[in-house]
Amino acid sequence: MPPDGRSASRVRTFPLIAPSVGVLLVWMIVPLAMTLWFSFRRYNLLNPMLTGFAGLNNYRFLIRDPALPAILITTVVIVLAILLITISAGVVLAVVFNSGFPGQGIARVLMISPFFVMPTVSALIWKNLLMHPVNGLFAGVMRGLGFTAIDWFGSWPLSSIIIIVSWEWLPFAFLILLTALQSLDEEQLEAARLDGAGSLAVFFFIQVPHMARAISVLVMMETIFLLGIFAEIYVTTAGGPGIATTNLPFLIYQRALLAFNVGSASAAGVIAIILANVMAALLIRTIARRLDV
């Protein structure tokens, strides 16, 4: 390339990159600015007379809402529980699947399939066909074994949601961890075994450390998706009983599209954005370190 190649190529590439950057800029700034703006306004779709600057009132009402701590805890519990389940099970499964057994390809397809099932289907199949307290498969099996059937969504609503969403996200964790594990140098494993390392030692001192970066990427990606869990709650419990399964997204949905309180919903939206951004900043730093442009 000639010495001035850099500036020449920048002129040439600008029209290629500009459309992507342009639409994303609009897509990011306009809604974000509107959310922020509304969060300081008095704005209720049912009451057009109510206008004007609300100051911090929307935030004040939100924070004083006695339900808010419970809702924030539910939001965080969903994220943490599913992270713990999917990643610990994913690590073990990745190691088991990495051993090269007959029919491995088909078994892997069976493992990852739930990830491609749309969330509304997963939620309804689990809610009805499997977890229904009378006609569900689990109830049938429990009774067949002589136990009383569990009323999943009545007695354990949050756990039920966590089980369903974990089933959806385990394949994602598994697939990424397996991919990471497959890049492990076979010779390194062989050397460790020759030095007398047992399976457990290999697992904890070689395989798990090798998956460390994949695990950290997983934690951040999943957190961002799981903070937004909505469809599964929408079709199974609708946030109930009471507020037992109401997380932040569902609260915003209720405020905005059921109560038409734009100001209050926007204030909750700002909180959701701040929560997600803490994770996002970490994720972007990790990915940036690996990006050698």
Binding site: M34, I252, L275
Partner: peptide
């Protein structure tokens, strides 16, 4: 290039629910 790529990634981090209200109204 690097900054543009990372910035694009950051737009994906905006939780959908945070902008439900403006998108709905728009």
């Amino acid at each position: 290039t690097r900054d543009i790529l990372l910035w694009m990634l950051s737009t994906k981090m905006l939780p959908a629910v945070g902008v439900l209200v403006p998108i709905y109204l728009l």
